[in-house]
Design a protein around this nucleic acid. Structure first.
Lengths: 366, 366
DNA sequence: TTGTATGCGTTATCAT
DNA sequence: ATGATAACGCATACAA
């Protein structure tokens, strides 16, 4: 009967006490152990293939080595890029990432938060836009508060609607710049694949786009603002509906890239050429876009860096975290009244071939 | 001074013993608690915002609720799709996924395995092709054996080169079918973007492709077999090199889709039209391909299902795991002599517009 | 049905 | 420098 190998076994084989074995293997901060004994302990550990029990260590130390990450869908390139940044930063800090996927269900988000709380994750990164749903937000807020009260730290990548450290993308402003750039290319008739009505990210992008157009005396017809899921398939079906109703839009703004990709596919399937026939623009600049033709006009968001930044924000308290391509500059970092930090990440316009300008130049604006 | 809320606190507030509180909150298998007391305990727990310490539970129960997942790169759509299947299946089993990313470094794979071992993860899924590197494989084999000896279970998504449950993709056979289909479309001159020399997945696909061609009296010139990284950028630079040397290839087989996407980009950048100018084919049918034009000819592999299957394989011992679109049929499931199971997953050909047939039909085969 | 007491594997405090 | 021993928070065998 072997059973699991414990530190006691190692100590016994090495002929030392439990305490000495612990110190030899871990290198206690205060105590030190004679190299002669250390060798013996290490040899015994190797011989027995001893692997320290991290759960027991967590108990004794009162601290785990896990970092939680909650995303909406890990297969979505938006989230998988963020996840890459998070795992990278976490592993640099000696932590492992515990991944939860909500499948776009806000209630699962709360449930996952509770699981990570029970796991005593050192910190939690929550990625993904918030919803305008009081009930869900209340539950989420409670779960967050409970976790933080127990000593956990949180960083969100979303709108700054909770009192936790937050990385917020400048959705409205960037969408506005995109609108202006499209106007600059000659477009005058716009449609918007707007995502779910109560999805805050979608709303900010919609509204920022519309506001900038309004500043130019332009607007999006109500019937040309399509409500749809925040996914690739949502973009596809939304575009289908748009094309079915005889729209006069020259260019379509999809509030994220995966939706824009769905829209491009729908256009192709309907025999409409993207670029010449109708313009399409997205938001995020997901990695996938490198291999899409025509190139999709979009707003570039440094997703991997944002993931790493959020991780460090959650890990490093009350000071500016390490640099992330300038993202954590004083310029973008503010400390709110409740002490939590907010980093605003600007997007940058990327004009590509999907919006070359309208085929037939419309009349000048009056 | 509050400090962390423990079960003792809940018990005290509820006016019951520790044991009763434990049973009320967990619902012990054998014992039961009077509903009156249970209510009181639950109320106390809610009032105190009690969250059970999963580490302590793990200690007491001798079992954790974590499942490890090791991938090469979570931002790669191949792995993020597998990860989606794994997280899905894991959460169905009440487990959380602990994610490790190797960044294509085999040594990190061993290190991550050890970390997950220390974490006492219930099971570990290792995804990603193996290398023909004895030193690395020995270290990995040791780490796997050590983990399994301690009671952990493992499933790999790769070549069946270790004695653990394995899901293996029929690389050689599928690549062969692809070759035949390309010949059927009239191609006679082939090039291969072959990935790293010692990468087994790449090798199997290369060799399967070449063998099928040989069966038709055809072959790939040595100078038309390009060695490159197993990534999108590897495919890009490989294709650049291929085009730089004046190749006479009519069609290029990239041993995975992300490489094929890189190759398509390189062709475009070089002014060569994919499809008419030169054919390109890939392998995997990653989700990204839906939005690529022209459509990429490839071998479809059910990645999400494979992730879920591997997870169940790791979780369910000594019997056939739940169905996964027929993947675990007796037809594909074999039990090896060492008792480990092997599921061979066939790929299925998907011919798309990237390989319409050669522009100029070559002379008939003699 | 409820309570008492022990053990899980490790760290850390205290002697020595 | 090393060794006993008491936590850490919970589950459970045993006693009542």
């Amino acid at each position: 009967m072997s059973g699991p190998v414990t530190l006691s076994d190692v100590a016994r084989v090495a002929g030392v006490s439990l305490a000495t074995a612990s110190r030899a293997i871990n290198g206690s901060a205060t105590r030190t152990v004679r190299s002669e004994l250390r060798e013996k302990v290490l040899a015994a550990a190797a011989e027995l293939q001893y692997a320290p029990n991290a759960n027991a260590q967590a108990m004794a130390r009162g601290q785990t080595t896990a970092l939680g990450l909650i995303v909406h869908d890990i297969a979505d390139p938006y989230f998988s890029s963020i996840a890459a940044g998070v795992t990278d930063a976490a592993e640099s800090a000696g932590l492992m990432v515990t991944l939860g996927s909500t499948q776009h269900d806000p209630e699962r988000e709360v449930a996952l938060l509770q699981v990570l709380h029970r796991q005593r994750a050192r910190a939690i990164v929550v990625a993904g836009g918030r919803h305008d749903d009081e009930e869900v937000n209340t539950a989420l807020s409670r779960a967050l508060a409970s976790y933080r009260m127990a000593g956990g730290t949180v960083a969100m990548i979303s709108q700054p609607v909770f009192d936790v450290d937050t990385v917020a993308i400048d959705n409205a402003e960037s969408a506005g710049q995109l609108a202006q750039a499209l106007v600059g290319r000659g477009y005058r008739q716009f449609a918007v694949l707007g995502g779910p009505k109560d999805h805050l990210t979608a709303r900010e992008r919609r509204d920022g786009f519309a506001a900038a157009l309004a500043g130019q005396g332009l607007q999006v017809d109500d019937q040309d603002t399509i409500e749809c899921a925040f996914t690739r398939d949502g973009g596809y079906s939304g575009m289908q509906r748009l094309l079915a109703g005889r729209t006069s839009a020259q260019v379509v703004f999809a509030v994220n890239d995966v939706m824009a990709l769905g829209a491009m596919a729908a256009a192709r399937d309907a025999g409409v050429e993207v670029g010449r026939g109708i313009g399409i623009a997205g938001f995020d600049d997901i990695a996938t876009l490198r291999d899409v033709t025509p190139g999709l006009t979009t707003v570039q968001v440094p997703l991997v860096a944002i993931g790493a930044l959020a991780t460090n924000l959650a890990l490093v308290h009350h000071e500016a975290p390490a640099q992330h391509g300038g993202l954590a500059d004083a310029e973008h970092l503010t400390t709110r009244r409740d002490g939590t930090r907010l980093v605003r990440v600007p997007g940058s316009l990327v004009m590509r071939d999907s919006t070359p300008g309208p085929a037939t130049s419309p009349a000048r604006i009056s």
